[in-house]
Computed example of a mutant assay.
Amino acid sequence: MKTDVFPLNYFKNIWTSKQIIQQNNSFNWFQLIVVLLFLNGLMIIPVSLNYAKMETFSVQNTFPETFQMIDQTVVDNMKEAAFASGEMNLEESFRIQTDNGVVAAGLTEQEAAQTLQEDGSVLLFLKNELQLREKDQSVSIVPYTKEFDLTAATTIAEFQDAVSQQWFIKNQTFVIAAFSAILFALLLTELSLLVFGAAFFLYIASKNKQTSGRKPYKKSVATVLYAAGVPSIAAMVVGLIEFNVITMMTIQSVGLIGYIWFIYYHNRINEIKAQKAVKAQTT
């Protein structure tokens, strides 16, 4: 199998400073961007796996006014309901009007539709589902799971947690995807600033007369991306063992800087050896 084609040549060359220096002009800009996205993707793997382990998620920040309507009166009224196999039965429906909106349970489909036409926030407990709507937002419909039961909640906090967990069960995929996308964007911004910033300083240094010739900026970017390979892999492994975004970012950034120093330290030693060898031959 050929290992000198993209992207295999990237993994082949990240392990030694000699290979990095020799091959830092083998990529075009599109390939460099692909490598940048790949390295950032390595950081996201532990993030997604960690979010996938979440069992509950507080939605009070998503529906602040709606959750504020849940008081002890609502908790006490819902104790009269019976939950079984994903259905709720309530002999006598109730409707509570608050400053923020309406909390109701046991309504008919027509009554629920009329309530949703009103202004303000809405929290409805219907036969097979609960419906939440924050003021001026769309309605979130959450079907009951077979295990869902609010009668065990005796406090406002327990009641809110039960509703949050039910919402999270339905929206878990969306929550994981949203959090991962946000963190992907943040990490990509941080990595891009680090890579292109470090590459700029390498490019400026390469124009110094004391260095071995001038190197295009693209070669400097390639060198930095090569240097980011091993630290990014290490950060991913650490994140899989014990997830901590700050620790992962520290390993990646500090490792990248250290790897760049290692690359050019060994490259400078080789240049000095080559210069001594040339002098020895001429004397």
Rank of each mutant, 00 (worst) to 15 (best):
K170F: 04
F262P: 02
I260H: 02
T108M: 06
A234D: 01
F201L: 04
R133N: 01
N89K: 13
N40V: 15
L116Q: 01
A153V: 03
E91I: 10
L32V: 07
A105H: 03
L36R: 11
L90A: 08
A222M: 07
Q97E: 13
S26M: 12
M236D: 03
I21N: 12
P7Y: 01
V254R: 05
K209P: 08
Q72S: 10
K276P: 03
Q172T: 06
S206L: 14
A181Q: 12
H266S: 14
I21Y: 10
T211Q: 15
G258V: 02
E147W: 06
F243K: 02
Q72L: 08
L8K: 09
I96M: 08
K135N: 14
I233K: 08
V142M: 03
V238P: 03
E242L: 12
I33Y: 09
Y203G: 07
F63I: 00
P216C: 06
Q281D: 10
E242Q: 14
P46V: 01
G86V: 01
S85C: 06
F168S: 01
T73G: 07
I33Q: 10
A274V: 07
W15I: 04
T56W: 07
V142T: 12
V103P: 00
N89P: 05
E91N: 15
L8S: 05
L150Y: 00
D71T: 01
S48C: 14
L124Y: 05
T3K: 14
K2N: 14
P64Y: 00
S93T: 09
I156S: 04
A153Q: 05
I246Q: 13
L124I: 10
T108W: 09
R268E: 12
L126S: 08
L191F: 13
K276A: 06
L126Q: 10
Y226K: 07
N61R: 11
Q131V: 12
V34C: 12
F125E: 02
T66H: 01
N13A: 02
V175D: 04
Y259G: 00
E118N: 04
T66D: 01
A181M: 12
S253H: 10
Y264N: 09
A185M: 10
S138V: 10
G229M: 06
P46I: 01
L187I: 15
K146C: 07
V75F: 00
V59P: 07
V195Q: 08
S121E: 04
A81V: 06
V74P: 00
P143K: 02
